[in-house]
Design a protein around this nucleic acid. Structure first.
Ligand SMILES: [Mn+2]
Ligand SMILES: [Mn+2]
Ligand SMILES: [Zn+2]
Ligand SMILES: [Zn+2]
Lengths: 138, 138
DNA sequence: TGTTAAATGCGAATCACTTGCAACAAGGAA
DNA sequence: TTCCTTGTTGCAAGTGATTCGCATTTAACA
């Protein structure tokens, strides 16, 4: 468990409970963004079962603390991935098999300034996802 | 009602029903993307009430025909906007008041090729949304 | 006008996610 | 260590968005 994560939890008045550690362990062991249901299932397999509501509450809280990033792929459910130790990036998902691949790039630094000057909004974030067909599904 | 829309419906083996025309009229009269519930409410006001399930079925079908584009703003519900007569573009939404503004730009033509060569996926589309704070909510 | 396939309304079902609440467990103070 | 405060959890019930089954219409067209 990274110190920075522990510090963030403490700074937010959050406790480092056992279930919470298990969730973070699952998240950190996963390169790709996972759904609440997937976290829930893996916890059961890992002999650390917990209520799905607890998973949701923790994912929401971790997101509020900025420790995990939400990834919306229009699947009807959200995905989440830990931020710690990874660059801001985006994803592409295959419309056939659902496979997700990390795109270690973000073209939006410059564009954000343009958007801000055009709209007078203060841009706080963005979501960018690609959809297509992977080689196997082509 | 634009001919191109009628043609697309016909090509897809779809009928031009009265409820369907009413939905399309609502969509065409709205510059910004709307939710199924909003369409449903406006139809009632316009004295052309119909079942919410019918609204959903039609929005889904119109999306499959490529006549409307989905807009996902992480609100817990999808939005839709007609494609006809409008350039491909993106949006920004205020985290405070929810206001949505069209961004008449898309920086992703070049990037798409880069993504394709990097991942070997055939990119079919993308979603890009910005989130921030509008001047009134700042 | 008759036939057929698509579309609609209605009600029930699903699905992802949230909430109320009583029992529990961190973790800091004494 | 023990005690106390406060966040946390499990469980069950509740929401809200979206979907489905099915009997009844309606558009399209021969
Ligand atoms: Mn990722
Ligand atoms: Mn738009
Ligand atoms: Zn980015
Ligand atoms: Zn674009």
């Amino acid at each position: 468990m990274a110190d920075s994560i522990i510090d963030s939890l403490k700074a937010g008045g959050k406790k480092l409970t056992k279930p919470r550690q298990a969730i973070l362990a699952i998240l950190e062991s996963n390169a790709l963004p996972v759904t609440a249901a997937e976290v829930h299932a893996r916890l059961k397999k890992a002999r650390a079962p917990m209520d799905l509501a607890t998973v949701y509450r923790n994912l929401t809280m971790l997101q509020e603390l900025g420790l995990v990033d939400p990834v919306g792929l229009r699947e009807g459910q959200m995905r989440y991935e830990v931020r710690h130790g990874r660059e801001h990036h985006h994803h592409i998902q295959c419309r056939g098999c659902g496979r997700i691949v990390d795109l270690m790039l973000c073209p939006l630094k410059k564009l954000t300034q343009l958007v801000e000057s055009q709209t007078k909004f203060a841009v706080e974030g963005h979501s960018l996802e690609f959809f297509g067909w992977c080689p196997q599904c082509r």
